[in-house]
């Protein structure tokens, strides 16, 4: 390590590092794009396949039209879905929020009601109604390419105020809330950013470019996989759960020891 750190200060070290970096990035990039292009086109194909659109429409009419209208034009009970895009359907149906169990301040997450193929077909149908955010390319979901440190900074500026610094979620007005992001699939996190479900603001590609979104997802993944070094997390809720714990668990232990200490031995 010592030798390396000395050589690091060499005048040409920076140049060498830059060249090396460029070489690796270039190599990786060309490799990645070929793979991704293949996948992306495959994805795009599936979403524009007329069979899928037709099947999606059938599912839509049976399951969604009550609220969203027979042509997805929207009713009093549900908004129009024209132009919301495939990403929106993938998120709402894929996380089980839609179909909604009941009207409420906001749709609750629950086990998905449709399998992946059905979700894709529904998304294909809705996407065919009008242009909207598409399902993200796999390239931008590959967290290994993301920079968690940069993602963390973006997360704290753009997301933590609602979703909490540890992504544990938080309250909004009138019973609405920002959900916890623990265990949420990268594609759903991505889709939430591009579509702005419920009351969440939209983070369009002009606001956070796809690489930014990837960094944020990389941060979330890193955060979740790194664990909690101090011990049990107490729900990632910060000072409130810590205070609650010392007043319940901590004091219970202490009072038990006090009662034992002052009781007479038999």
């Amino acid at each position: 390590m010592k030798a390396l750190s000395q050589k690091r200060r060499h005048p040409f070290a920076g140049v060498a590092l830059l060249l090396l970096g460029l070489l690796i990035t270039g190599g990786l990039y060309s490799a990645a794009t070929t793979i991704n292009e293949a996948q992306a086109s495959e994805n795009a194909d599936a979403y524009s396949d007329p069979d899928n659109i037709e099947e999606g429409e059938r599912l839509f009419v049976a399951n969604c039209a009550t609220c969203h209208g027979i042509n997805a034009e929207g009713t009093d009970a549900g908004p129009s879905l024209i132009g919301v895009g495939a990403a929106s359907v993938d998120f709402q149906v894929g996380t089980g929020r839609m179909p909604m169990q009941m009207q409420g301040p906001q749709a609750q997450q629950k086990p998905a009601q449709f399998n992946d193929e059905q979700t894709m077909q529904l998304a294909a149908y809705v996407a065919s109604l009008g242009a909207g955010p598409a399902v993200p390319d796999d390239e931008y979901l590959d967290v290994d390419q993301g920079d968690p440190a940069r993602g963390g900074e973006l997360f704290r500026i753009n997301c933590a105020m609602c979703h909490n610094a540890a992504a544990a979620g938080g309250a909004l007005t009138e019973g609405k809330y920002a959900p916890s992001l623990h265990g949420v699939e990268p594609r759903h996190v991505y889709a939430a950013m591009t579509t702005g479900p419920q009351n969440m603001p939209v983070f369009s590609d002009a606001n956070l470019v796809p690489e930014d979104k990837r960094d944020i997802i990389a941060f979330l993944q890193t955060y979740e996989s790194q664990g909690t070094p101090g011990g049990f997390s107490l729900g990632f809720l910060g000072p409130v759960s810590e205070g609650l714990f010392i007043w319940t668990g901590g004091l219970a232990l202490l009072i038990a020891s006090m009662v034992w200490l002052t009781s007479r031995s038999s």
């Binding site: 704290r156 105020m161 610094a165 938080g170 920002a178 955060y223 000072p239 007043w247």
Partner: peptide
């Protein structure tokens, strides 16, 4: 988790000690 202080960010569940 919280990041260096900066007047712009804030987090849900911003609470003091009990």
């Amino acid at each position: 988790n919280y990041g260096p202080y900066d007047p712009s960010p804030v987090q849900a569940g911003a609470q003091p000690d009990w």
